[in-house]
């Protein structure tokens, strides 16, 4: 009798097993939902973006190499004026320049925070960088508009709006991202590498330069790529200082535009399904593909540089 009861109990699913299953289903459905959303966004942007080429019969060549952007009108040579090259060039220029300016600053700050004065780093610099991340981009843009643009105008001439101002604003915006990720990667360099280096007669500086930074290079590259992804996707702050002229930039202080700035400026002013609207979606598609590319790059660097242990 007793045994039968026990056997029956054992055959049934226990309470914990049901909880287990419930939790499993819950997290699985959350995952599926997110995957569906991401996939949905990609498919939506792709169909919209590609319809410029397939419905409106714009050639890829005109889009990627044309330098005249005024969808709905024609260029003097009779093509549709949907040349996105100025925006693509603008986006890449501000991104690359901002990364080039930020990286040395970020590495310097991170080295100070982890190697030279960890206590002060944790007490002062850590909260400061976190604060910088939290400032809304419109505030950056506003400061850029009222400080950076006049500064550039007075120093380099021109209107002050342009790639250079965009670079300065993005430099401050992506600095905390690169700093905090570089700090993480420096911290993950094992202490015994430093000891080994010092025991071989290296100075502290040589140890930082030749061992710590070198061992952390994959992590630092990842940080820079993340910063670039952020700069590439930043819209508002850049739009406020770059001048928003869909022209090929002649120099760093002439008004220009980026993919994001044209998108934010134009998205409210077009009719769904029109060429003007489709062309904007194509810009969005270029942005999306670039973000995916940055993500893949990060994965690739991360996998290649992981500490084998």
């Amino acid at each position: 009798m007793q045994n039968q009861k026990l056997a029956k109990q054992l055959m049934k699913k226990s309470k914990t097993a049901r909880y287990e299953r419930f939790g499993h289903l819950l997290s699985l459905s959350a995952l599926l939902l997110i995957m569906a959303i991401v996939l949905g966004i990609i498919v939506f942007v792709a169909t919209k973006g590609l319809s410029t080429f397939f419905n409106d019969h714009i050639s890829f060549k005109d889009f990627f190499t044309g330098t005249l952007w005024n969808p709905g009108t024609k260029t003097p040579s009779g093509h549709q004026a949907v040349g996105a090259l100025p925006m693509i060039v603008g986006s890449f220029l501000v991104t690359i320049l901002a990364a080039v300016v930020s990286t040395p600053f970020a590495i310097g700050t991170a080295v100070y925070m982890t190697e030279i004065s960890p206590k002060r780093g944790a007490k002062i610099l850590q909260p400061v960088t976190e604060l910088l991340v939290g400032i809304p981009s419109v505030v950056y843009g506003f400061i850029g508009l009222s400080v950076v643009v006049p500064f550039v105008r007075n120093t380099f001439g021109g209107s002050g709006f342009g790639i250079l101002s965009g670079t300065f604003v993005l430099f401050v915006m992506i600095l905390p991202t690169i700093v905090s990720m570089t700090v993480d990667s420096l911290k993950s360099v094992p202490k015994y590498y430093r000891q080994a280096s010092l025991a071989l007669g290296a100075t502290k500086w040589q140890t930082i330069w030749k061992v710590v930074l070198r061992a952390a290079t994959p992590g630092i590259l990842t940080a820079v790529v993340f910063g670039m992804a952020r700069a590439f996707g930043e819209a508002l702050a850049v739009q406020m200082v770059i001048g928003n002229a869909a022209l090929m930039p002649h120099n760093l202080v002439s008004p220009a535009s980026t993919l994001t700035s044209v998108l934010t400026a134009g998205m409210g002013n077009t009719v769904m399904g029109s060429l003007q609207n489709d062309a904007l979606w194509s810009l969005a598609l270029v942005l999306l593909v670039m973000s995916l590319f940055f993500n893949l790059l990060v994965h690739f660097i991360g996998r290649k540089g992981a500490f084998k242990k």
Binding site: Y192, Y193, Q195, A196, L200, A215, K308
Partner: peptide
């Protein structure tokens, strides 16, 4: 010079 307990070659 010094050799440590854990092998610690640089990466």
């Amino acid at each position: 010079g010094m050799v440590f307990q854990q092998p610690n070659p640089f990466p």
